[in-house]
Design a protein around this nucleic acid. Sequence first.
DNA 1: TAGCGGACTTAGTAATCGATTC
DNA 2: GAATCGATTACTAAGTCCGCTA
Length: 738
Amino acid sequence: MCVSPCVVGHTEQVIDHSHCTSCWGYPKTECRFGWPLSPPNDLLFLVDSHRHKYKEHKHKDHKKDKEREKLKHGNGYKLQTAYTSSTGVAPPHVKCEPDDDFYHSPKHEKSLKRERDDDEDYDFKSKKVKTENDKKDKKRKQMEDIKPKKTKDKKGETADGKKKAKKEPEEKWKWWEEERYTDGVKWKFLEHKGPVFAPPYEPLPSKVNFYYDGKAMRLSPEAEEVATFFAKMLDHEYTTKDIFRKNFFKDWRKEMTSEEKAKITDLKKCNFSEMSDYFKAQSEARKAMSKEEKLKIKAENERLLQEYGFCIMDNHRERIANFRIEPPGLFRGRGDHPKMGMLKRRIRPKDIIVNCSKDSKHPQPPPGTKWKEVRHDNKVTWLVSWTENIQGSIKYIMLNPSSRIKGEKDWQKYETARRLKKCVDRIRTQYRDDWKSKEMRIRQRAVALYFIDKLALRAGNEKEEGETADTVGCCSLRVEHLKLYPENDGQEYVVEFDFLGKDSIRYYNKVPVEKRVFKNLQLFMENKEPDDDLFDRLNTSILNKHLQELMDGLTAKVFRTYNASITLQQQLKELTNVDENVPAKILSYNRANRAVAILCNHQRAPPKTFEKSMQNLQTKIEAKRDQLSDAKRELKSAKADAKVRKDEKSKKAVETKKKAVQRIEEQLMKLEVQATDREENKQIALGTSKLNYLDPRISVAWCKKWGIPVEKIYNKTQPHEVFFFSFFFSQIESNSDP
DNA sequence: TAGCGGACTTAGTAATCGATTC
DNA sequence: GAATCGATTACTAAGTCCGCTA
C-alpha cells in the first residue's frame, strides 16, 4: 500500500500499482473527495513551469487552487470523471491498454494504392495537367476573382453585397486509394511560380528621427533599416535582454557607414522611441482603414495567394504552406538563445534554389536577377530552399498539410504507431530484462527507453554547445537534471526530473519508478559531476538503431505518437458519460485531449487576457443565475395562480414558464462547462497534440459513437479533413466500435 | 562509426479574422 | 458601425532522423 496525495492535497490509501504494467504506477482512482490522485508537484509544474530560466521555481499557490476548487464545485454541474481538477491536472501518464481495441490495424486495411497504368505510360506533363484541371481552376479563379474568400456577412452575402454563389461540392482527391511511389520518388511533375519576396525597405519619413545621445541623427538606409527592426520590438521583453542587445548592436554596426560606426558606440545612448511611435501609429492607421481599403488589401493578398500559393504536383493543384520568403529582422531565438538579436538578413533571388520538374514552366526570378540554382530533384518534397545566416541551416518552402505528400506521411506515422501497439508488450518485456544486463550500455539504453515510453520524453539529440539554448531530451539528460529519492511523500523510488526541453519549455515531474530503474540510475550517476551525461554510453543514433531491430520503422518518436493516441483513446473511454449532453461530452473530449497535452508537456503562456476573459465569463454566469432564479420565481407564482384559477390559460402559462426555466438551466450549464474548460486550459496547449500526435480516427470514431459533430473537434481547415471525412468513416463503421 | 548536412516534423507565439455585443 | 475578444492562421524556431562521407 502507498499513500498518495491527490492534486489538492487530500490523502488516500491506495494499492501500490507501481509494478503494474497496466497502469504504470498511476492507479486510476480518486481521493474521497473525487479528486484524481497525482503527485503533488505536478501542480507546481503546471502552474509555474512555462518557459523558464533554469531553476527559477515558484511554489504552489494554495489560495488559487482553492478558488479553482470553488469554481469547480460551485458551478452546479457535476463532473463525472477522474480528471476533474480545475487546474487541468491529470495524472502525468495514464497508459492502460484499453479492453476494447480500436487502436489496431483495421481488418480490411486498404493499401495506399494509386490507381494508374504503368509509370512510363503515365503522363505527368503539364499539358495534361492543364487539360484536366483547367476548367475547374479557371472557374475557381474566376469565382475568387469576383469575390474575396470568407467575406460573407451573416446573410450569406459577399462583402460587395452580391449573394454568395452556392458552393460547388468540392471533389476530393482520394490520394489514399492510390499507389505510393517507391525508391524515394516524391513526385513526377512539379510546377510552381517560385517564392514571394519580402517587400523592399521603405525609408522613414524625414520627420521621424533617430536620436543618439539626445541629438537627432540621419542614418544611412542600410543602418536605418536595421534600426527599425529594433524599434519595432521596443516594447518586447527581448530588447531588455543583454545577449539580445549585444548581438543586435554588433550586427547593426556591421551595416553602418564608417562615420556612423565612429559616432554610434553605445546602444544605451540610442533613442528609437520616435521610430517606435511611428510604427505604432502606422499600425493604428491600418486598423482604422475604411472597409474599402481593407477589402482592397485583402483582394491583393488573395491574388498573391492564387498566383504563388499553389503548385501543380502530379496532376493536382496543391496549396503551398509558406510561399513568402521570411522577411529580414532580428533573430528571436527561444529561451536563453546565445544568438538572439542577431540580424536575419534579407533573402534575395541569388540565395534561392528552385526545385521543379524539368518539363514544367520554370518560375522566373524578378527582372534583372538570377536564381542561385534551378534543380530537378524529385526525391525531395521542397519547392524552394535557401540557407539562413544565423545557424547556417537550410530553410524550405513546402506544401500545406492538406496536400497528398504531407497527408501520406502523416498516415504512415499513425500506421507505424499502430504497428508498435502490436509489439509494445514484447519491447517492454525486453527492456525490463535489459535493466539486469551485464553491459552498462544495454542498461542505459533500457532505462532511457523506459523513460521515453513511460514519460513520453523526446529522444534528445546532441547539440552543439553555445550555438543554441541549453535544452535536453532523454538521451542528453545530465546528472543535474535528476534527483533521486529512495522515499518521498510516502512513495518509494521517486525520481525528480527538472530540465528544459524543446523550445526551452521546462519539464518538471516527480515520478515513482521501479526499483531496478532506481538502482540503475544510482549506478549511472555514481562518481559523476552534475554536468556529466546521465547516459554516457548512449545517444539517439544507438537507441534508434536498437529500436529499428525491434520493429521496422521504429524510432524514439513513435513512442510519443503511440502513447499520445492510446492515452486519448483510453481517456475518452473513461471520461465519456452516456447520460451527458453534447457540451459535457465535448468537455470530456477536451479533458482527454488535455491528458495527452500534459503527457507530452505541451504548455503555453497563459493568454494575456485570460483573467479578464474568465471574469467576463463569471459575470455572464452570475447574470444567468439571477435570470434563472427570476424564472423560477415566476414559475412558482404561475403554479400558484393556476391552482387558484384552474383554467386552461393559467395551465398554459405554467408550461411556458417551465420551458423557460429549462432553457435557462441549459444555458447556465453551457456557460459553466465553458468556464471549467477554459480554466483547465489556462497553461495547456491542446492544438499541438491534436495536430501532431492524435490519430484522427480515434476522435472521429468517438464523434460517431456519441453523435458529436466532427466540426466540434476538428475545425474544417485542420489537415486531417481529407483522411477522416471519407475513407475512415467507412472503415470505422465496418470495423470497430470505439 | 562518428560527424555532419539535409529533409522533414513538431512547436509556441504573433498576427489576423470574424462573430458578438453594445 | 465600432469595439471587444476568442478562434484561427501564419510564421518560423527547434526538434528528429536519415543517409552520405571520410
